[in-house]
């Protein structure tokens, strides 16, 4: 009797979690399914969780290079890789130095780093600075510069560097290693777990960013993937809200990629995240203990 009751509650528990997991995964599967469905069926039958007629036409279109998607992929990869590496380097150098007792004014400097959490000028002054003073509008660098430093990441990194024993740095100094060399050859290799965690978050931030491009980028060949996706969606949105216009627009559909191609682009934008997912999940859970609750 007890055994049966136990099993019943266990089964309920797992059933609940299976249902919940489906609620988180099925919407994604829907997008994947649409991208593999023959266009004709999308028109006739709407979206389905399983393609009525399987087709890879959308992906062929995407990879033929017709929709400037490959170019957008290139922009996103460049921005993500360069941005993440620079972010990690800058953050590590800054937060390590802020923990060193040799730096006399480190308390004041730490406060300088934290103050922007309290008050910031907001979007408009930054926009004017980047466009009219630094003339970064419509360059690839503007996509990188806006996320180069994050106060919170400096804070997390600083907490991590505190755990590196001072004796290690001291003995390197005795061996005649300069401070900068000590940092690169001894401290950085020890910081791999913290760098990996922060790096994954920064990678995601760069990869998923559309807002910066939407404000600063005009040239079609500088559009990152997410921004390209957003402009494609704006077109659909326009068609949806103007039913009459959509008839004539769909007649002149040459300018818009097909529905399937849009969804295929979306799937390709998620792709790398899914591929990296086991790694992501692992470092995400690790990161929770490194950064404590300070997200």
């Amino acid at each position: 009797m007890i055994l049966r009751k136990l099993n019943l509650s266990k089964i309920t528990l797992h059933l609940m979690f299976i249902t919940m997991s489906l609620a988180f995964i099925l919407p994604l599967i829907l997008v994947v399914s649409i991208s593999f469905t023959n266009e004709k069926w999308l028109m006739l039958d709407g979206y389905r969780f399983w393609p009525k007629e399987f087709s890879t036409a959308a992906y062929q279109y995407v990879f033929s290079g017709a929709g400037s998607i490959l170019n957008a992929y290139g922009v996103t990869i460049f921005v993500t890789v360069v941005g993440t590496l620079l972010h990690l380097l800058i953050t590590a150098m800054l937060s390590y130095s802020l923990t060193r007792p040799e730096v006399k004014h480190r308390r004041a400097l730490t406060f300088f780093v934290y103050l922007p959490v309290l008050f910031n000028g907001g979007l408009v002054p930054q926009y004017i600075l980047l466009t009219q003073v630094l003339h970064l509008k419509d360059t690839i660098w503007v996509l990188i510069i806006v996320y180069l430093v994050s106060t919170v990441n400096v804070l997390i990194m600083k907490n991590f560097f505190r755990t590196i024993p001072d004796s290690l740095i001291e003995s390197a100094r005795m061996d005649g290693s300069g401070e900068i060399r000590t940092f690169f050859q001894i401290v950085l290799p020890l910081s791999k777990p913290a760098l990996a965690t922060i790096g994954l978050f920064v990678t995601i931030a760069y990869w998923n960013d559309w807002m910066t491009a939407s404000l600063y980028i005009e040239s079609p060949n500088l559009r990152p993937l997410q921004y390209l996706l957003q402009s494609l969606m704006n077109n659909i949105g326009y068609l949806q809200s103007n039913a009459q216009a959509s008839q004539s627009m769909e007649a002149a559909i040459g300018m818009l990629p097909s529905e399937g191609a849009r969804m295929a682009t979306c799937v390709l934008a998620i792709g790398p995240i899914i591929l990296l997912y086991p790694l992501l999940q692992k470092y995400f859970e690790k990161g929770l203990t490194i950064g404590a609750v300070k997200e």
Binding site: V31, W207, N208, W210, L229, Q230, M233, M263, A269, I270
Partner: peptide, 10 residues
């Protein structure tokens, strides 16, 4: 880990 654009599509 998904962007708000991807969620917009979903």
């Amino acid at each position: 880990f998904l962007s708000w654009i991807v969620i917009q599509y979903i």
